[in-house]
Structure formats: structure tokens, C-alpha cells
Amino acid sequence: MRILKKLLVRIILLIVAAGILCGSVVAVLGYLMYRDALKEQSLEDKVAEVQADPSYTALADLPEIYLDAVVAVEDHRFEQHCGIDIIAIARAAWNNIKSWSLREGGSTITQQLAKNLYFTQERSFIRKAAEVFMAFRLERTYSKDEILELYVNSIYFGDGYYCVRDASEGYFGKEPADMTDEEATLLAGIPNAPSVYSLTANPDLAAQRQQYVLQQMVKYGHLGEEEAAAILQN
């Protein structure tokens, strides 16, 4: 019995050691990817490139309900974290272990911005590590408002629309500031899976996603239940 216990302890220690070693390798390779990305183009130049787009829209020109919807559905701890959300990452890691896949990433708005600015959509641990390093850099360099503004101006909304202004004009034929509450909350749900929630390809699925957006807004105190219900009735 003692031999079995010792063997079990050794196996556990080997697994832990292997995990630490693999994690260290991934972190180093991720840092190198992050460093190479900045060597190719500095963060300041990359941000200036996004801001120079004629369709770039300032936060002041966006409906408050749209911004609240984005934060509620994408990263409700956005104002509290330093670029990564440990709770979301732990939940995603557990779900990935259970499914033996990389279906969930637990990405914050800052991490998504880092990916959109520098990296591909490839799902790998190394790219994820590089994304984390870039998220930390973004949080050190820019304010939360600046990060959120860059985010909504660099995400994909389907149908060839790569920023909030293009999506608002393309889907609704109006400036972002003129979106109704119904349109704003509908638009906020699309970037999670643009090919799935595109308003032209799958309007019914987009409407289902909007219901989830409104549920999250109620859950995190951005809307009351009656307000959310009224938006759906419009």
C-alpha cells in the first residue's frame, strides 16, 4: 500500500512538473511573439493607424447604452481588471479541459483588442500568451476609455464591417449616435461570432443573441428588467 501511495505521489509530482515546464515554455515563446510584433510595428504607430481611419468614432459619439451593452456582454469586469480576467480564464480553462479543446479563451476586451491589432485568429497557447503580454502593455499605456474606444473601432461585425460606424451605417443606414436602443443592443451582440450573428445572414440568431445581451445588462445593473423588456418589444 505504501509503495502505491509513493508511486501515486511521484506521478502527481511529475504531472505538476511537466505542467510548470510546459507553461514556462509557452510563456517564453509567447513573450517572443509579443516582442517580435512590437518590433515590426510599435503600439503607438498601430493605434495611430486605427485612429486615422475616416470611420473612426469617438466614445462621445456613441450611445451610452451601446457601450454598456458591449461591456456587459464581452467583459463585465472591464473596469476592475488589469488586462486579463483571472476568474474568466479559470472558468474557460476548466471548460476546455472538460471538452478537450480550446473552445473558450476567457478573453477580456483588452485581450481582444490586442489580438485584433497584432495577431491572427489562430487558437494556440503561444498566441494566447502573446496576447496577454500585449494586453498588459495596452493597459499600461492607455486608459480604459481609450481601450474601449479602440476596441469598438477595430472589431468585426460581419458583412465586411470592421468598426462600429461602418456596421451602424451598413445595417441601419444611420450614424452610430442615432442608433435606437434596440439597434444598439442588437449590434453589441454581433462581434462574438460575426458569421453566426450577421443581421443579413441570420437575423433570428442575432435576435436571440440580443436577448442574451439584454439579460447580461440587467444582471450587471445597466438596465432594469422592464427597460430590457421594452427594448425587445420595439
Rank of each mutant, 00 (worst) to 15 (best):
T180C: 03
K219N: 15
H222F: 12
A17Y: 15
G221L: 04
N96M: 08
Y161W: 00
Y118K: 01
K219L: 15
C82W: 09
N234E: 15
V71R: 06
S24L: 11
M217V: 00
G106Y: 12
E169R: 09
V71Q: 04
R209A: 12
A207P: 13
Y142Q: 10
A48T: 14
Y220V: 10
I97S: 01
E40D: 12
T185M: 08
E131A: 14
A18R: 08
A193T: 03
N95T: 15
K128W: 01
A230R: 07
K98A: 07
A167K: 11
L32A: 00
D166P: 14
P54K: 10
E131N: 13
E122G: 04
F125D: 01
G189L: 02
K5I: 14
I84T: 08
L14A: 15
Q80T: 15
E183T: 07
G224V: 12
Q233D: 13
A135W: 06
R103C: 06
I109C: 00
A88P: 05
S195D: 15
G19E: 15
L13A: 14
Y31G: 05
A228S: 05
T200F: 13
L148S: 01
K128R: 03
E227F: 12
L102I: 02
M217I: 08
E225Q: 08
S143E: 06
A60C: 03
E64D: 14
Y34I: 11
N96F: 03
R91L: 11
E227L: 11
F78D: 09
F172K: 13
Y34V: 00
E146F: 09
A228Y: 02
Y151R: 08
R35F: 02
D85G: 10
L13F: 13
Y162F: 10
T141S: 13
G221A: 01
L59T: 09
E131H: 02
V25L: 14
R140Y: 04
C22S: 13
E40C: 03
A72M: 05
A18G: 07
D166G: 10
D36Y: 12
L187V: 11
I231G: 01
L117A: 01
Y220F: 14
S124E: 14
D85C: 02
V71A: 10
E40I: 04
S168M: 05
K174I: 02
K219W: 13
P191W: 06
G160N: 13
H222E: 05
D159Y: 14
Y66Q: 07
I12N: 00
V9L: 05
Q111H: 13
T141K: 13
A130T: 03
E225Y: 09
S154D: 08
Y66A: 08
R2C: 11
I86E: 07
E146G: 07
L113E: 03
E227D: 11
E139Q: 10
I87A: 12
L187W: 10
A188T: 02
E131K: 10
E182I: 09
L232R: 08
